[in-house]
Lab assay of single mutants.
Amino acid sequence: AVSDRLIGRKGVVMEAISPQNSALVKVDGETWRATSGTVLDVGEEVSVKAIEGVKLVVEKLE
């Protein structure tokens, strides 16, 4: 799938994300809905860990 190429890519949080709420991230110039197990604020850099349906699963870039 096209989205599989995004695993391992870096992105930027466009809307705050919490474990209860998905929000938008920008990866390679494209906007995607994403979820995370932690709270992520706007502007934080993230890494794509997986794809669940049409959502990216991201975590904060260390």
Rank of each mutant, 00 (worst) to 15 (best):
L61H: 07
A34C: 10
L24H: 05
E44D: 15
S36T: 06
V27H: 02
V54G: 15
I7W: 00
T38V: 11
G11N: 01
G11Y: 00
V42I: 10
L61K: 06
R5V: 07
S3P: 13
V54P: 09
V57Y: 07
A34M: 00
P19D: 13
L61W: 12
V54R: 12
V48W: 00
K26N: 10
E62P: 12
T38R: 06
A1T: 12
R33T: 14
V54Q: 14
V39A: 13
K10H: 11
G8V: 02
V2S: 10
E62H: 11
G43W: 04
V42R: 05
D41R: 14
R33K: 11
T31K: 07
I7G: 01
S36H: 04
T35F: 06
K60I: 06
L6A: 03
W32C: 10
L24F: 08
R33I: 15
L24T: 08
V58E: 02
S3Q: 09
E44I: 08
L56K: 03
L56E: 04
L61R: 06
E52H: 10
K55C: 15
V58H: 00
R5N: 08
L61S: 08
D41M: 14
E59Y: 00
A50L: 06
L56G: 02
E44C: 12
G53C: 03
V46A: 01
I7S: 02
G53S: 04
V39Q: 13
I17W: 15
M14E: 05
S22N: 10
I7Q: 03
I7V: 09
G29A: 03
T31L: 15
G37I: 13
K49Q: 08
E15A: 10
W32T: 09
G11S: 02
D28Q: 04
D41E: 14
P19A: 12
P19M: 10
I7R: 03
E52W: 09
E45P: 07
A23M: 15
E62Y: 11
I51E: 01
R33A: 15
R9V: 05
I17E: 15
K10R: 13
W32A: 09
V48L: 01
V12Y: 06
S22L: 12
T31M: 14
M14N: 02
A50K: 07
L40Y: 03
I17M: 14
A34Q: 04
L40H: 03
A23R: 02
V57K: 04
S3D: 08
E59C: 06
D28P: 00
S22W: 08
T31I: 15
P19K: 10
S47A: 10
Q20Y: 10
L24A: 05
E62G: 12
L40P: 02
N21C: 13
V46T: 01
I17R: 13
T35K: 07
A34W: 00
I7C: 06
S22M: 11
K60F: 04
K26T: 09
G37P: 10
K49D: 02
Q20D: 13
L56S: 07
R5P: 05
G11A: 07
G37Q: 13
R9W: 02
N21K: 12
I51K: 04
I17Y: 13
V48H: 01
G11T: 01
G11R: 00
E52T: 08
V57P: 03
D28M: 07
S36A: 10
K10F: 08
V46S: 00
